[in-house]
Amino acid sequence: MGTIVFFIFAILAIAAASGVVTSRNIVHSAFYLALSFSGVAVLYVLMNADFLAAVQLLVYTGAVSIMVVFAVMLTLRGEVSDSNPENRKWGWGAFISVLLFAVIALVVLTNSDWRVLPSAWTSGGSAEDMSLLLLSQFMIPFEAAAVLLTVALAGAVILAKGVKENQ
């Protein structure tokens, strides 16, 4: 059962990802990207990483809409149906993708931490486990990230408010 679901959503995620790079309309690319992210979220659920799946939806899929808004605001192209001409130069893209895939595969295959477990992982993916780890073992990176995000938030508000010219 789990295998069937895995293959359905893995194929969905990969097909959507190929749609991102082959679509001629840049807005379609963005929506394909959202679909790909959602497919990956389902794969996280299959791996008992519910929290990560929810974060994937909230942060990645949700942020695609912001990306579309920025893309539409910042690009100056007359015809949106042919707004993504760069994707025809696929030779270099394919080369770099294959290279990246080879590097990732090398790391995964040589590193023993990345091996498939003999039995299914049943513990350690819930929000409770995550928060316990974050507030004990990874306390300092967690706090640093929290401070960074708060600073970014305050900075965004100040930027949006505008700096007065006479100061």
Binding site: D50, F51, V55, L57, G62, S126, A127
Partner: peptide, 13 residues
């Protein structure tokens, strides 16, 4: 287990 977090994640889409 993630109840409210799931709700927020889904409604953000």
């Amino acid at each position: 287990d993630l109840g409210i977090f799931y709700f927020l994640a889904v409604s953000s889409i």
